[in-house]
Every structure is written in structure tokens, then in C-alpha cells.
Design a binder for these strands. Structure first.
Lengths: 158, 158
DNA sequence: ACAAGTTAAATTGTGTACAATTAAATTGCA
DNA sequence: TGCAATTTAATTGTACACAATTTAACTTGT
């Protein structure tokens, strides 16, 4: 349906670099737009999206060092250090050097951090109501994304 | 294995704010990781990802004002102005005020910008070889993402 | 014609992202 | 043991991304 016969939707030498033919671009846009949709809800907790996912990881694990948190969130210390300092400033986490290995910094959720969780549980259902997607599509999307992430983050070189 | 009556994959009060149950999070990670994968290829052209998608839009349209480009890329002037100034500095685009409406800034691809396109066409096929995804999944993914974007960017309030 | 409202881009300020480097602590091995 | 490699966070520098504000130019209603 789309090559050298020159139909209505014809194929050109530059088709592969058209925005509409990229997969990365809707991925990039979708990610940004969803995060933007979170903003009003996250504003209630005075958290940014990055702070929110960091808290999510910490609510589950209670305590992690920066490296582990980074593996969990796919972020490095260059991003996490300022985020964690901000969260510490807000009183939601505590940072301290590991006693048995002074290189590591242990991040632990505080009492106030655990209380924040109570407010946070209201966010996913409200977000869900905002995003126009069927249950089947959500499952499909999650499956495909996880497959891509697994392939891309391993040494899956060309 | 960890609370009330419950099976193996049991349901807890806080399940909805676990990282693994979010759809936004793999979307965010996938987008970032794919962009990271582009970097070695984009480095050859000395373009960032944002500069690359801006050039993609401009290669197709030759000339656009900042507002149109922003609608196309889902970016505002606060992001685009510095990106376009950088691209102008590299000699790939020219920026000038519209003569009939001095509020608008017209962005036009230069000769050098069009030549860059020749190098850029090699990127998508090489990226495709890097990303571990079947043709069917790619089609599915594109379909779902476009649906979400359409729903989220319109006033699809809860 | 003109004040009021609107639109367009730029600017300002905050917060990521990430590569590259640095500094300190720990490990491994000759 | 002793020191070179490695690991861990933090720092530095560049580049977005976006909300909010500003400035200038245009449009509209009267």
C-alpha cells in the first residue's frame, strides 16, 4: 500500500524521518502529557513527578541507598541527589551515610513521609479517570513498554 | 504471603501507588531510554533529541512560525526559543519576524539544514535495528499512544 | 479611531536529566 | 600488606520543559 507506485499515500525518500512515522515521538509526547496531567494532583501534595516516583519506590521499600533507588527509577545520582535533598527538606525522607559502608547513602522514609502516603493513594484512581484508555489497551501498552525497556536497557546493541 | 486472607498476588490498601502498577512510569522510562539510545546517532549530527524533532518538523514544512512548530511538537516558546536559537547558531535554520504580522517569528530551514537531512535519513533504520520490538507491537503501540494523546490533550477531564 | 482584549514570542525561575569528572571508601589481588 | 582497580555519591556543566510573567503587535467592539 505504500511504495514506488505513487499512490495517494506515496513513499518518498524522506518518509522515514517524518515525525508521524516515528515511534519515539508519540512515546515522548505521551509521557510528557501524562506527567502534565498529574500536576494538579501532585500540587495538592506539593510534589513534582520525580519526587512522587521516588516516594513511591521508598514507600514500598522503606529504606534504600541511592544506587538502588537509581536502579529502580532509571535515574542516576546526578538527578537523584538534588531530588532527595529536596524531599529531605520537606521532611519526607532522611539521608544518612551507611555505617558499614561510608560510600553509600541510605534514604529512609520518615513518619511524615509515611503519612503522605495516605494522601497519595487518592491520586491513581483520579488519574485513571482522566486518561482515556480501555483496560485491554492499558494491559497491552504495559506489556509492550516493558518489553522495549527490557530490550533497550540490556546490551541489546544493533 | 503478606496480609489478610489473600492469595499469592494479593491486594493491599497501597497497591495502587506501587511503581509496578503504574502505567505512567514505564511510559516515562521507555521514553527516556529510547531517547538515550538515539544519542550516539544524534551525536554524529551534533543534534540533541529536541533539536532533531524540531528539524524533522521543519524538513517537512520548510517554514513555520514558532506557534505552529510548538503545536506540532507539543512544546511552548519557553522551550523552543532557546532550541531555535541554537539551531540558528549552527546554521540550520533562519529566524525572522513575519512581515505581515510582527508578532510571529518565521522559522525557515537553510541550505545547510536541508543538507543535514541527507545524514538524518540514516538514523531511523539504525535505531529500528536497536529497538527490540515486533512490527505488530509497534503498530499496536502507535495506535494506543495516539489514542491516549488525543484524549489527554483535549479537554478530556475526569 | 481607539481603548480593551487577545495573541505571539521572549524572559524568568524552578526542577529535572544526564554526561563527565571528582573525591572518598572499599575491594581485590600480587 | 599495599596499592591499583572499582564502587558510590556528589558536583559541574549543558540542555531541556514548563508555569508565570512581560512586552509588543494585532483585533474587536463601539
Amino acid at each position: 500500500m505504500k511504495d514506488s507506485g505513487k499512490k495517494c499515500t506515496e513513499t518518498g525518500r524522506y518518509d522515514c524521518i517524518k515525525l508521524e512515522n516515528q515511534l519515539c515521538f508519540p512515546l515522548y509526547v505521551c509521557s510528557k502529557e501524562i506527567v502534565r496531567r498529574y500536576k494538579p494532583f501532585l500540587d495538592e501534595l506539593e510534589l513534582t513527578y520525580t519526587q512522587y516516583i521516588a516516594m513511591m519506590a521508598l514507600w514500598e521499600h522503606e529504606t534504600m541507598n541511592v544506587r538502588q533507588l537509581g536502579e529502580c527509577l532509571y535515574l542516576d545520582s546526578g538527578t537523584l541527589t538534588p531530588v532527595l535533598k529536596t524531599l529531605e527538606g520537606k521532611g519526607y525522607v532522611q539521608r544518612k551515610r551507611c555505617e558499614t559502608d561510608e560510600r553509600s547513602v541510605i534514604v529512609a522514609v520518615t513518619e511524615a513521609g509515611m503519612e503522605l502516603r495516605e494522601k497519595a493513594v487518592t491520586i491513581p484512581p483520579r488519574m485513571g479517570a482522566c486518561v482515556n484508555i480501555t483496560q485491554e489497551d492499558a494491559v497491552e501498552l504495559a506489556r509492550i513498554l516493558k518489553k522495549i525497556i527490557a530490550g533497550v536497557t540490556n546490551g541489546a546493541d544493533a
